[in-house]
Amino acid sequence: MGKQSRRDFLKTSGLIGAGLSGLSSKKAHSGVKKIIADDRMGVLVDTTLCIGCRRCEYACKGAHDIDPGRIEQYDDRSVFKEMRRPQYNAYTVVNEYTDPENPDNPSNVKVQCMHCDHPACLSACIVGAFSKEENGAVIWDEGKCIGCRYCMIACPFQIPQFEYHKALEPEIRKCDLCWESRTKDGGVPACVEICPMEALVYGKRYELLQLAHERIEKNPERYLDHVYGENEVGGTSWLYLAAQDFTKLDFPQLSDEPAPGASEKLQHAIFSYFIPPASLFALLGGIMWINRKQNTTEEE
């Protein structure tokens, strides 16, 4: 058996090597779409302007085939007693926070997907069902998703919502910046369009950043000198201005490192061109071969 199997060993090893290198080149060009265009769009939210009329919630539902109900229902301010989070049937919600130093002027904060420049969901998704489009929208592809919910583990803002109540075709639901229905063709997101106070401004992200800093500079007593989303997790398409500390408005305190962060780097290090796994394979093969040789010699 000795000779025969040793020759086989070499032959098969060669085939495996070729196979692996083929595999690795395919992997390098995996088909996940992540465009970070220079003139990508964004939305600037001025929480000091927002009056909590919740018309954005109404418009959002209308734009995503969810029954919005009667518009008068949104005048009910008792919902602000509890902090609400986006749901499978509400991609955006507005919360209210009282400023202890200015109790008559509460801050209203609209919550929705931040549309990160380096989205953790996009990096995490096992099938690459998320993509970042030209205008900055991070969208989800129903045709690919397998419902593993790793995007929910990854998202630092707890945004993707899963339809737990559905046994079949449950969806991951979140704000898509109205990509499909409006912004793909140059339109404006529904929430921005309806906002009476123009607390939401839709425009090119770099212009919005200029605008945000200009507002802070002109009204330093009105705003905290921080644009949330400018650098957080490597930058987000949605940017926020506020009068008080963002942690008090329930924004997570995040570093400027992109959210996928070390995990993506580590993953690429372990799999860089398949060299480490292939080397391990070769090493183990070598050990096996040497041990077998000794063994065969002993036996013979």
């Binding site: 140059g186 369009e193 106070m197 123009e198 401004v201 425009g203 605008l211």
Partner: peptide, 13 residues
């Protein structure tokens, strides 16, 4: 809403 100069609020705003 989509206007060149974003520094001035739109009419609605």
């Amino acid at each position: 809403i989509l206007r060149d100069d974003l520094t001035k609020p739109g009419l609605k705003g």
